[in-house]
Design a protein around this nucleic acid. Structure first.
Lengths: 109, 109
DNA sequence: CGCAAATTTAACCTGTTGGTTGAAAGTTTG
DNA sequence: CAAACTTTCAACCAACAGGTTAAATTTGCG
């Protein structure tokens, strides 16, 4: 399990967060991940390595294409760490309630 | 409002996360924040600047002592960003439910 | 086979991070 | 006032991050 250090550092780059958002939609090949960005394939390849080391994505090579897949479990530790901040949770009640309504229809409230 | 870049980068250092945890207990002077750590006061001062720039703490000088105070609102954006990961939320249901039970007794479920 | 495609590696550059030490600045107190 | 205390500033350093380009690697295909 990647440490919080590694996970938060991986999340601190906007390119990498954008990549994660893209992978929410679907698994993607490296070349397709790189397409929207104004930087070299090599740079994107490095970003993908960082995300992989953080456990935020996994990569599977099929043929000459390497597919990138979101691994959302890695966010759990980071989120749990945040939740340890009791004072914070009170602030964020609205977001949590919205989440609950969406995720557990007819259960919350 | 500090960007996600800055907030996540601030959270990626274990010394800074430890400082935040300490400030959960109570506001603290810079010297007292530094006491448990095996590094110079100047280094801690820099860490506190990073946390301040991220909006995670505030500092108020009273006399010759500068008091550090947790500002948990800054974590909200980061948390909301994480919540945009639908697949992640499903994984984290237990933690969210535990939070709800603790925070909204008699309301959830 | 031989070329094209997909991705990584290597070498390099620049800027930033996290730490150091020593001096400086502002504040309190004897 | 002078000494002590709290904190920051300045200069420096080693290590790392994020980008580049060019070459290498692996795989698919006519």
């Amino acid at each position: 399990m990647a440490s919080l250090d590694i996970v938060f550092a991986a999340l601190s780059d906007p390119t990498r967060r954008a990549i994660l958002q893209m992978l929410l939609e679907d698994d993607m090949a490296v070349t397709d991940v790189a397409e929207p960005f104004a930087m070299s394939l090599a740079a994107i390849s490095k970003h993908l390595t960082v995300l992989t080391n953080a456990g935020l994505i996994s990569q599977e090579k099929r043929g000459r294409v390497k597919w990138c897949k979101l691994e959302p479990d890695a966010l759990r530790d980071a989120s749990i760490w945040m939740q340890s901040f009791g004072q914070f949770e009170a602030v964020n009640l609205d977001a949590f309630e919205a989440f609950l309504e969406r995720e557990l229809p007819g259960n919350a409230e």
